[in-house]
């Protein structure tokens, strides 16, 4: 079994077997994180650039740790798009990186499709660390991983994603990842934040939170982005919180042994109350730990050879 592509651009179109291979590998690699020396020499000599066009703390650190624990050579390149827009084009930047003999590029950008664009102009393996509102495949994988670790299965679980579905790349990757492994996925959010024809992605869409939560096993609470309020998708955060906030009262609709997830960073008291976020059913910090293992698995599986000497 191997991955069909040497890039990780999206979970859309990935088979159950491919996702399972990544998760199984991550499970094995997670053990390294418990060793006295949390580093293995696997990717020695492999050059990885973290190309971040959008501010990110946790994803970048998580990737960087994953790379370092596999002994890759890591270079960080952060740029605000505003300055890049004025100066060098993305293509020129990428060509420069290519000229430095880099093997893998981890890229985050606020425009959808940039990781694909990179595959068209360089030879390195490209890993999408979030492109616009398109996908964030490693987040999707770590979410599936965390749920699988707890329940030992994905098939048949009822997963609800709550929040601004329209602008969320996490929602999209989660939808593809969980549905590929047989979960029953719903999305829930204000009607202005549910994109057109979302049901065609194989999910049910709700605007009534209680209805969506009925009988659910996993609730993934998305961050409500304060900066996206232009265009009046929401009258106020207060109103959002009242209608869609995950509070303790609402949890009794869930199945026993339910799970609360959040990709972070949390707006405490807006989309989720602190007592739920920090409660016994929350796996929010496990997600962070698992993020490193999942990213190590992705790096490992994509580091092999096409284009290299046999």
């Amino acid at each position: 079994m191997k991955l069909r592509s040497r890039h990780l651009l999206a979970l859309e179109g990935m088979s159950k077997d491919e996702i399972t291979l990544i998760l199984d590998t991550a499970e094995t690699l997670k053990e390294i994180l418990a060793r006295p020396i949390r580093i293995v020499p696997t990717l020695r000599g492999v050059g990885v650039v973290n190309l971040f066009y959008e501010a990110s703390t946790r994803t970048r650190i998580s990737f960087e740790l994953a790379e370092k624990r596999l002994s890759a050579e890591v270079v960080n390149f952060s740029a605000s798009t505003s300055s890049v827009k004025k100066g060098e084009t993305l293509k020129d930047t990428v060509r420069n990186i290519e000229a430095m003999k880099i093997d893998m590029v981890v890229v985050r950008h606020q425009a959808s499709g940039v990781p694909y664009f990179l595959t068209q102009c360089m030879k390195a393996s490209i890993i999408n660390a979030g492109d616009g509102a398109h996908e964030h495949p490693t987040q999707g994988l770590l979410d599936v991983f965390t749920v699988r670790e707890k329940y030992k299965r994905i098939k048949g679980l009822k997963v609800v994603i709550v929040g601004d579905i329209k602008h969320s790349r996490v929602a999209r990757s989660d939808i593809w990842g969980f549905t590929a492994l047989g979960a029953d996925v719903s999305v829930c959010g204000p009607t202005t934040m549910l994109p057109l024809e979302i049901e065609k992605m194989g999910v049910k869409a709700y605007s009534d939170l209680d209805q969506a939560l009925e009988g659910a096993d996993v609730v993934n609470v998305l961050r409500i982005q304060l900066e996206r309020q232009r265009g009046s998708l929401l009258p106020s955060l207060r109103e959002y919180s009242n209608k869609f906030g995950i509070t303790r009262d609402r949890l009794n609709r869930l199945n026993q042994n339910f799970t609360i997830m959040h990709p972070g960073p949390i707006n405490r008291g807006v989309e989720i109350t602190p007592e739920v976020a920090d409660g016994p059913h929350s796996v929010i910090l496990d997600q962070v730990t698992n993020g490193v293992a999942v990213r190590m698995a992705v790096l490992y599986l994509l580091s092999g050879g096409e284009g290299k000497v046999e």
């Binding site: 859309e12 959808s112 499709g113 492109d131 616009g132 509102a133 398109h134 996908e135 602008h167 790349r169 999209r172 994109p195 057109l196 024809e197 979302i198 065609k200 992605m201």
Partner: peptide
């Protein structure tokens, strides 16, 4: 649907 799945 395409803009929805591409997040554009």
């Amino acid at each position: 649907f395409v803009s929805t799945s591409l997040g554009m």
